[in-house]
Design a protein around this nucleic acid. Structure first.
Lengths: 214, 214
DNA sequence: GCTGGCTTGTGAAAATCTTCACAAGCCAAG
DNA sequence: CTTGGCTTGTGAAGATTTTCACAAGCCAGC
């Protein structure tokens, strides 16, 4: 049996996520179909790029008409692994952790934060929307009980590596890492790093460049 | 006069930011020099990549020895535009805004959040570390008074476009956008989008792929 | 049923990015 | 001063990504 989900490039995957959001907006507007050019404009890319991206997992469009919004939305959800819920544990109940816990788009997409951990005694025992903050010392037990597949790591740089290693050993399969360090983990653990300083610095670089070049 | 800051690819810029952080760690460890291989290991790339990245803005290394940590650090700061402070205004005093305001790495790098705005009357008038939250209705005046160059946009998707347009018209040069929408703005305004849902969805895609492919 | 106007899907070309491989060169030791 | 061991800088090769351009094909209207 050939897989329903083929390998797609990293940049294509990220664009698919943008297309998904755009398609939801189109659905809300009642659109039945959308042409690659329209989807591209709304998602900030080009028509050719959209068609290439979509063609990498089969023909979904109709010539002369475009893509049917509903089926395309369903197919992208499938590609991105969003047709089933994911069990997530959040480590770090600081400000970033708090923002992520409350981020509505995560739960909309089926990412369920089953538990919250922190190492600060002042935070342990606190309750966020019915979820009690537990001690990070119990990481392994919490992960096992929750059968967590994904860890969101929102802790200071100094604590990240150790917690990530323990989570990996406890069987977590993917980590979304907000700590500004490169985690060294076994290859079978997927890591996606989000570094806010990098984002701001990329912006300041662009501004300096614009100054110099006009 | 040739520019001190040449055009470098987007991915190189992002890696430079990682190198910068690594160099700071090396400085703290008291290292005088670092070889491309070592820098690569710590930053999560390859020695050849490091050398290519660095060679794009001049020869800085010494054969047989490596790169001198201090001067390289200084040069990368210059490339990234971090040798002078940036005046930043934060729009959105929700959870993400709160996390960004408190994020220590921003102020360490010279990004100064001069003002905070929100449109929620319940938040306006509140004070965060001495900064009073003002009404988003006064966006233009606040930007002008602060002489803000960068806007951090941490508002719901529905409010982002209008605020971004107003900020652009008021002369902001760069926007770090956390709202999950594509902003349509004049070309001279630099926009860097951070979409947390994309990050988590890229991770879930990778996990599904790993399941299917072994 | 035929025609005209769109739009897809996709090979090929172009552009970009990464890796390779090695000459050039520096330092330290003797 | 010379030798040996490293490491840079960089053209060239390789890989990947994006853009181009157009044949193929669908729909609506007549």
């Amino acid at each position: 049996m050939t897989s329903l989900v083929r390998s797609v490039s990293e940049s294509t995957v990220r664009r698919l996520s943008l297309y998904l959001r755009t398609l939801e907006r189109l659905q809300a507007e009642g659109a039945e179909t959308v042409a690659s050019g329209d989807l591209a404009d709304r998602a900030g890319t080009t028509a050719a790029q959209v068609r290439k991206d979509l063609s990498s997992f089969g023909s979904f469009g109709t010539r002369g008409l475009g893509y049917r919004v509903g089926p395309l939305h369903a197919r992208i959800r499938e590609i991105l692994g969003l047709t089933r819920p994911w069990r997530v544990v959040l480590v770090g109940a600081g400000r970033i952790g708090s923002a992520l816990f409350a981020y509505p788009h995560f739960r909309e997409r089926g990412f369920r934060i089953e538990a919250i951990l922190d190492s600060d005694p002042a935070k342990i025992g606190g309750v966020w929307e019915g979820v009690t903050i537990q001690s990070a010392a119990h990481l392994e037990q919490v992960l096992a009980r929750a059968e967590a597949e994904i860890l969101i790591l929102a802790v200071p740089a100094g604590a990240a590596q150790e917690l990530a290693e323990r989570a990996a050993a406890a069987g977590v399969r993917g980590i979304l890492n907000f700590a500004p360090v490169r985690l060294r983990l076994p290859d079978e653990v997927e890591v996606n790093n989000v570094n806010l300083a990098v984002e701001l610095e990329a912006l300041s670089h662009a501004l300096v460049l614009a100054e110099v070049q006009g």
